[in-house]
Design a protein around this nucleic acid. Sequence first.
DNA 1: TATGAATGAGTCTTCATTCAT
DNA 2: AATGAATGAAGACTCATTCAT
Lengths: 206, 206, 206, 206
Amino acid sequence: MGEIRQPIKKHSIAKKNKIIKDGFKLMCDKGYHNVSSVDIAREAGVSTGIIYQYFKDKRSIFIEGAHLYASKIMFPMLNVLEKEKISNDNLKEMIGKMIEESIKGHKRNKKAHGELLSMSQLDEEVAKILKNNEIMVTNKVVNILSANGFSNDNLKEKVHLTINMIDLLTHEIVYHKHSNFDYSVMTSNVIDLIMHLLSRNILSNN
Amino acid sequence: MGEIRQPIKKHSIAKKNKIIKDGFKLMCDKGYHNVSSVDIAREAGVSTGIIYQYFKDKRSIFIEGAHLYASKIMFPMLNVLEKEKISNDNLKEMIGKMIEESIKGHKRNKKAHGELLSMSQLDEEVAKILKNNEIMVTNKVVNILSANGFSNDNLKEKVHLTINMIDLLTHEIVYHKHSNFDYSVMTSNVIDLIMHLLSRNILSNN
Amino acid sequence: MGEIRQPIKKHSIAKKNKIIKDGFKLMCDKGYHNVSSVDIAREAGVSTGIIYQYFKDKRSIFIEGAHLYASKIMFPMLNVLEKEKISNDNLKEMIGKMIEESIKGHKRNKKAHGELLSMSQLDEEVAKILKNNEIMVTNKVVNILSANGFSNDNLKEKVHLTINMIDLLTHEIVYHKHSNFDYSVMTSNVIDLIMHLLSRNILSNN
Amino acid sequence: MGEIRQPIKKHSIAKKNKIIKDGFKLMCDKGYHNVSSVDIAREAGVSTGIIYQYFKDKRSIFIEGAHLYASKIMFPMLNVLEKEKISNDNLKEMIGKMIEESIKGHKRNKKAHGELLSMSQLDEEVAKILKNNEIMVTNKVVNILSANGFSNDNLKEKVHLTINMIDLLTHEIVYHKHSNFDYSVMTSNVIDLIMHLLSRNILSNN
DNA sequence: TATGAATGAGTCTTCATTCAT
DNA sequence: AATGAATGAAGACTCATTCAT
C-alpha cells in the first residue's frame, strides 16, 4: 500500500515523464502553491490516482522536474559552452555571447526561474539541486578553460564569480527593467570586470 | 463590515507591532505557507480575532513586516554606511567592512533572507519592497560617494554592481559553505573587482 | 455580571431607543444576518459595550424594534382607520383608500416588511408579534364596523379575510410588478370581493 | 481550481441528489443559518469535501433544493389539479379539495414552507424560484379552466387571486390556530368568494 | 495499471459577546 | 455608565492523498 512504483514499460515511463514535464511547467507558471494535484493530473491528461503511484507526493514531482530542467532554466549560458570553444582570442566575445544567451534564456523561462529560486529557499532538496547545477556549470567552464590553456590560479573561484556576475547582470536586465539604469554600460562593466578577473589566468604563449 | 482599525493608543500600537514582529519572524522561520493565522496569534500572544482587526489578512502581516525589516535583512551593509565616512583612502577598507557586515547580517537572518527572496518571486508587492530597498541603498551609496568627491561617471550602475557583488559573495559564503572554495581568495577577488570598477571614479585631487 | 439594565434616566432611555430605532432600521435594510453588533453600535453612535448593557443580545434589539415598529410597517392601512369613520356609504371608498395606503406603506418600507416576514419564519417571538399585530388590527376594524352599525355575523372572520386580501393584493402589486397582470382589474376584483364578503353585514337602517 | 462537477454516473447522481434532499430538508428544519456545511455532510452521510465538488457553495444546495421541491411545498394543491378535471359542475367541490390538500400539504411541510418564504426575502434567486412557481401554477389552472369552458375574461388575474386566497386561508389555519376564529366559517367564506369571483367566467352552455 | 470519487484535517476569516479601563 | 479592544468558538471552503472499482 502506498509503494511508489518505478514504471518499467516504455508506455509507463513516457506517462511518468509527461507528468513531470507538464506538472513542473504548470507549477512554474502558476506557482507551486497555486497548483493542485488535480490540476497537474488534468494538465498531464492522467488521473489523480496514477500520480500517487509514480510519485510519493506533489512535492516530488517538482523535485524531479527540477532535476531534469533546472540546468537549462538556471544556466542557459551552457548552450554557448556546448557549441563553441573558448580561447584567449575570443574570450571577450564568448563572455558577451554567454550574457546574451543568459538574458534570452531567462526571458524565456522567467516564471520557472523565479519559481525555482523561490522553492530553493523553501525546500532543502531544491536548493541542493540548484547548488549542484552551479557546481556542475562551474566545473564545466573550469575544465574548458584549463583545456584551452588558462592557468589554474584560483580558477574555480574566479569562474564561479564570473558565472554569478553574469547571472546578476541578467537578473538586473530581465527583472528590473523600469529603473533608470543604462544597461549597456552595466553590461560593458561586467564584461570588463570578468576580463580583469581572468586576466592573470590568460597565459601569453597560448 | 470588517474594517481595519489603525490603532491610536500606545498600547494598541505596541500590540500591532508585536504581531508584525513575531508574526513576520515566525513566517520567516517556518515559511509563509507553513504558518497559520492561529500560529501567528499564539506566537504574538494574542487572539486570532485581533489579528483581523489590525490586518486585512495574513499576507498583509508579512507585507508590513517586509516594509519594516527588509532593509536590515537584505542590506545589513547599511550599518557600515551609517557609521563611517567613505573616502579615497579608506575605500578598500570600507568595502571589506561592508562585506563583513553583510556576511554577519545574513548569517543572523538567514531564514528571513531566504523567505523574503522566495516571497518576492511569489508576491508582486514583496518584490516591489525589495526593489525599492535596493534602489534606496544604491542611492544612499551613490550620494555618499558623490559627497566624498567621487566622479559621477556611471556611478549609479557601478554602485549597483558593487552592492550586488557583495551580495553575491555573501550568498556564496553563507549558503554554499560546503563546496571546496577558498573564500578568502574569492573575497579578495571581489574587493579587487570593486576597486577596479570604481577606480576611474576616484578623483586624484581629493 | 451580565445583568440587563433598564435605563431610568431620560438620557439613557433616549439612548436605548436610539439603538432600537437605528439598529432595527439597519437590520431591516441590510438583513438581520448581514448586520453585526458593531455595525449597530456605529449606526447608533454608541459603543458596542453599551449595547449589551441595555440588551441581552443582538436578537433582542430586533425584537424590541419589531414591538415598536411592526404595526406601522405591516399594516399601514391603520392610518386610514385612525383618520376617518367607516359607514355603509363610504365603505367601498374606504376600502379603496386602505388599499392605496397599504401599497404606499409597503413601498415605503419594502425592505423592513420583507425582513419582518423573513424573521417571523425564523423566530417564534417575531412571529408572535406579527400575529398580535394582525389580531389587533382585526379587532380594531371589527370594533369600528360594529360601532358603525355593521352586524356581527362572523364579522371577525370576514374582517380578517378582508385585511389579508388587501395585504395579498398589496404584495402582488409591490413585489411582482413584472408579471403581465392588469393590476387595476385585480384591484377592482378585490374591492368587489370584499364588498361581497361584507354585504350581509351591512344593516340597511343604518 | 474548484470546478463544480456534474455527476454522470448513476451512483454519483444519486449521491448528489441525496445531498440536495437531506441538506435541503435539514436547512428547512433548522433554518438555513443554523445549519453548517458539516451538518449537511453528516446528514447526507458524506464528507464535507464531496459537497464542494457537486456544489459551488452551501447556498446553492438550498437553491437546487428549492428548484426541486418548492412547487410541492408551496403549492400542494397541484396534486388535485393533476388528478381530477375541473368543470362547472364540480368547481365548488374542487375548490374545497384544493383547500384541503393545501392545508394537508402545508402541515406536512410547515418548516420548509416557512424557510422558503424567509429565504425568498433574503435571496433574489429563491424569490425568483417561488415567483416562477406561482406563475406556473397560475398558468396551469388558467389552462385547465379554459380547456373546460371557462371564459377568458380576466381569468389570469382571477385565478391568481383564487390561488392566493387559498394560500391565505391555509396559512391562517395552519399557522394561527390559537386565535378564536371559526375556521369552517372562514373556509366557507373563501369558497363563496372564489365562486363569486369566477361566476362571470362560467359559461352557461358548457 | 488506471480511474476519479471521496475523504477530512486544516485554512482563513467573522462576529456575538466580554472585560479591563 | 461607557468605551472599544480583545476573545475564541464556529463557519465555509480547499486540497493532498486514499481507495473502491
